[in-house]
Write a protein that binds this DNA or RNA. Sequence first.
DNA 1: TAGTGGTCTAGACCACTGG
DNA 2: CAGTGGTCTAGACCACTAA
Lengths: 242, 242
Amino acid sequence: MLPDRKPLYIVLAEKIARAIEDGVYQVGEFLPTEVQLCDEYKVSRTTVREAVRVLQELGVVSRKQGSGTVVEARKARSKYVFEIDAIPDLWQYVESTELKVGTTRLIAHSEALVPLPSGQWYLIEAIRYLDGEPLAWKHVYIDARYDMAVQEVGTRRVPIYSLLEQRYGIKTERIHQSIGAVTMPAPAAIALGMVEGSIGLEILRTYYDDNQKLFEATLTIYPPNRFKYDNELKLQYGSAAL
Amino acid sequence: MLPDRKPLYIVLAEKIARAIEDGVYQVGEFLPTEVQLCDEYKVSRTTVREAVRVLQELGVVSRKQGSGTVVEARKARSKYVFEIDAIPDLWQYVESTELKVGTTRLIAHSEALVPLPSGQWYLIEAIRYLDGEPLAWKHVYIDARYDMAVQEVGTRRVPIYSLLEQRYGIKTERIHQSIGAVTMPAPAAIALGMVEGSIGLEILRTYYDDNQKLFEATLTIYPPNRFKYDNELKLQYGSAAL
DNA sequence: TAGTGGTCTAGACCACTGG
DNA sequence: CAGTGGTCTAGACCACTAA
């Protein structure tokens, strides 16, 4: 009675996974249809679907309605995820710090310190203070078509991305982060009270909507030894699941 | 006929989500049982279960067999995940670079450049080269009990974590990353051909097993302007799903 | 032990894909 | 158009939790 602890659909998922690993079902080819699997393994379609769902979540297969189920990988990959509840979590220290917005002006994409798609952009220059000391210098670039949101940036205590979401229905689908130790841009060095040519921590973030269009970018420069970017990667599911 | 595009279980999930948001079902309390929901909304249990599953994946409710379904949050949180297929993906540039292991020795935890749990640790000092130039200086700390793996580090082309997994069955459950621009430790500056007191990019990673025990730590120092740590955050599911 | 969520069946119809 | 995966029903039994 011991070996009967596992649900049928897990057992089935294991069988199929084994078959894929052994090359019975090749990567890139179709898995047998759900009805065929029902026949072959003598189970109901619900059970088959649950098993395939497990394999799908493991990234082993993918399903497409009307077409079929395709084998995507020979083995389940262990996946580590960096999970945040919302974008503002990217900004650490928000509690004890204060952001002071300086100038806001319209620029051409070529004037930006970061690569942007051509067109007009709003540039917002700001400085984040911690206990009265400047902690970070920041450039925010926003697509010029979203001028309504830009005008509100200084006045409300809301993150920019959420303004854009509210006003224009933009959904941030993807964020790219690039972090490095770089020579500070001159205005950043000045604002942070460092000599020109100083090295600092640069965090460049670019935000893309659901059409893969870049609509916002932020460049943040921290002086050395005063700030660290922390994150936590958790194992979501390992191959041990099967 | 247009409003009938959405599956029933999605519609039901939306209704329940709305009810939670409106306070009909309070956070921390039980949702009606699945059978009750079947009655109330005149749908089959399959549909109810699918709807609750959606809410569960959104983090709004949690289910416990034999007990019930508990409301966890008033609103669905948007979750962004940084997804990697495996730990080695953390190491970029691995293709075109070469890691040369220098000294390996046993140290006390207090001698380490990073905070470690007390006990004996192996320290491996290494340098990563890119096109013959030193790209990074690295300290790897491994719990002394895993000496068998340590001895293999230099000899095989396998990542350390995978050696530990093979030899000792350790599963890396959590990785903490801390990234900053810091004054280089003296040996790092020397190895990288920089003057003492130079600023560089530091990446500190600590690895925890499924008992939350720290078993490995790596400290990597890059010279400025030569390396960037890139990653990509994707929206896993947003509140817009409902 | 009563009641919950978890699994499973058999069967039906729908929505989409491809020839 | 035939065949796929997607949704849905009605009903059954199991595994677990809490009183």
